[in-house]
Simulated assay, not measured.
Amino acid sequence: MRSVTLAFLLPLGLLMATPTAHAQVPAPVPACTITDPELGELSGLVADGEHWFATNDGGTSVTVFVLGKDCQVQDVITGPIDPYDVEDLALGPDGTFWLSDTGDNDGDRDTVALLSLTPAGESTLYRLTYPDGKHDAEALLLDRAGTPYLITKSPLGTADVYRPAAPLTSPGPTPLEHVVSVRLSSTDTPGGPVPGVVGSVTVTGAAATPDGTAIALRTYTDAYLFPVTDGDIVAAFSAKSVRVPLPNEAQGEAIAFQPDGSLLSASEGVGQPVTVVAGAARLVAPKPPPVKPEPESASDVSESQPAEDGLPPIPAAVVTIVMISVVYLLFRWLRRRKSY
């Protein structure tokens, strides 16, 4: 973001909390430190199995920095489009980068945009329009089918989620539709450029796991993880979340999942660390179904289960005794008839 205002500091009572599942979560661990001044406004982050990819807030060209896991810049991918205010980064299923040119701090944009960038540097502009006025948005999600979702930034704790109402066209604009609202409650996690309530409820980034089974929204101070069933992003926001504190970040805006489910987090500012929350995606993984007990042996079942007609079963020993008695009585009766 380009500016932060303190005018929205509100009493806690005005915010309604989203129910959040209680869970023991690992603490974020610093992995390395961003030292390149070219990444002083790091705002978006994604990861594959080998690299991290980052983008800055704002900028004058479509730019993605290729990082090693030591935070060192190894390459830069650029396209010729001049964006207005890039805020987040996502990675499509086909390896295309998607940059959300959706920042609008002053509320003066008639359109926002998504920018696609291939690893070869080919870029495309897709303008978008909101159905209900202007919004500032700093978070972008792609579902596993590649559908983009924009999440607005609100100091009041309610983030609105939008997606294209039709296939994207270039240059557009393509209309957006509102699909769900997400309410966050304040926390006491320290950090961020805005003290108090606002910093802990303002959405500044988003991420999805590569397999699409979990998503994350982040504020300046915390991340909220949601399970995704059958690729349904909208339904996921109705599920209970798990909160992951991300304390003491100066201006935390970047978040990403690695393929192993670890959560990456980073802040604007040179000298800030990239931190890792190991195994974070497992916190919202579906629980395995209960293991059914092994069936009992046939003899055990015959002695413990009721008969199909509702009568108790007859033990085999009793049946044997009865049959022997019947044979014996029949034998005696035949002998008596012969004696006549």
Rank of each mutant, 00 (worst) to 15 (best):
T111N: 13
T118L: 07
Y340A: 14
T187K: 10
G92E: 14
A239C: 06
A47Q: 12
E308K: 14
Q305A: 14
A165Y: 08
V203A: 07
D88S: 11
Q258D: 15
T213V: 05
L6H: 13
V274F: 01
A17E: 11
L15C: 04
L125T: 06
Y340T: 14
V73T: 12
R183A: 11
A235P: 01
P273T: 10
V203P: 03
P30L: 02
G95T: 12
A145G: 05
I324K: 13
G92Y: 13
H178D: 04
V228K: 09
L6G: 13
L329W: 15
W52V: 03
K338C: 01
P315Q: 13
I77A: 02
E87L: 08
C32L: 11
G103Y: 04
S3Q: 15
V301E: 10
G92P: 07
P313M: 06
A266H: 12
S238P: 01
S238V: 00
K240Y: 05
E122T: 11
D300V: 14
A21Y: 00
A31I: 08
P293Q: 08
G196C: 08
D104C: 05
L140N: 04
L9R: 15
T124D: 06
S299A: 12
D57M: 06
T124H: 10
V318H: 09
G252E: 12
T174R: 08
L128N: 11
K292S: 09
G121I: 06
P171V: 09
V270I: 12
V4A: 15
L168G: 02
V179S: 06
